[in-house]
Computed example of a mutant assay.
Amino acid sequence: MRPSNKAARLDAIRQSIREHKVSSQLQLSELLIQQGINVTQATLSRDLDELHATKVRFPDGIMAYWIPDISNQSILEMTTMTMTHAEESAKADQYLAKVLTGLITSVKRANNLLVVRTLSGAAQFAASALDRQPISGIMGTIAGDDTVLIVSPSDDQAADRARWLLDITSGDVAQQERLEA
């Protein structure tokens, strides 16, 4: 039994998406009802947005919801075919490209630090999106109003992450995705 509050509902949504390949809001609603949680479609839609849920194609071809902060291990357990590290990385890149494109205005490097400028008010959202992903070369972020500081373990990794961040936010991932389709 769960308490009837938003935090419990969001946790139930995370758990349902982690344990099942949820392909629609109707399916998710039915899973929540089985747990004693009744929710309107509008609330469910807002909750999925707040959790940054997005639909991705799993290796077995099924399109289902994926929440970025679910551990990679849980995603692997959900699939009958194992995703490779490259596939996991591509999914994270697609998610970040979708979220960060249009928000980042510049990336500058100072040794192992990246100073990322965003639109006014977007820095905390951008930093949170980056922090939710297991990205090698990023130890953590600090966000203000329009600036994100990214700390990398080394100068070389910071240079790689700067190029990568510019690539995914410049539409290269989206262009590549269209070419592969």
Rank of each mutant, 00 (worst) to 15 (best):
F58V: 10
L48K: 02
P59M: 08
A90S: 09
K55H: 13
K108T: 15
L113C: 00
R46E: 05
G61D: 13
T101W: 03
A42R: 12
D93A: 09
T43I: 10
H52T: 10
G102Q: 11
T80M: 06
E87N: 09
Y95G: 02
A86I: 13
G102H: 06
L44V: 11
D69N: 13
R46Y: 09
D60Q: 11
V107R: 06
Y95S: 00
L114M: 02
N72T: 15
T40H: 12
K91A: 09
L96G: 03
N111C: 00
L103T: 06
T101V: 03
S74P: 00
T82P: 11
I104C: 06
L48N: 00
A86Y: 12
E88H: 15
M83I: 07
E77G: 12
S45A: 05
M81Y: 06
E50C: 07
I75V: 15
G102W: 05
G61S: 14
E50T: 11
V107F: 00
K98Y: 03
V56S: 00
L44K: 01
D60N: 14
L76K: 11
Q73C: 01
K108R: 14
H52F: 10
M63R: 14
I67V: 12
L76N: 14
D60K: 10
P59E: 03
A64F: 12
M81L: 14
L113F: 09
A110Q: 08
R109V: 05
G102V: 02
L44Q: 06
T40W: 08
W66T: 04
D93N: 10
M63W: 15
H52W: 09
L48E: 04
F58H: 06
R46P: 05
G102I: 04
Y65E: 02
R57C: 13
R109P: 10
H52A: 10
T84F: 14
I70G: 01
A90W: 08
P68C: 01
T40M: 10
Q41G: 05
T101S: 10
N38H: 13
W66N: 14
D49A: 12
R57D: 11
T43E: 15
K108S: 12
S106F: 09
Y65N: 05
T40I: 07
G61A: 09
A92Y: 05
S74G: 11
D47Q: 01
A110W: 02
T105L: 14
S74A: 15
H85C: 08
L96A: 01
A86K: 15
S71F: 11
E87P: 11
A97H: 00
V99H: 00
V39A: 04
I70Y: 00
D60C: 09
Q41A: 03
I70H: 01
M83G: 03
T79A: 15
T105V: 13
L48Q: 00
E87R: 11
D49G: 03
I62K: 09
M83P: 14
S74N: 13
E87S: 11
I67C: 04
Q41T: 08
R109A: 08
I67P: 02
Q41M: 03
K108W: 07
A42T: 12
T79W: 05
K91L: 14
K98S: 06
M83H: 03
T105H: 12
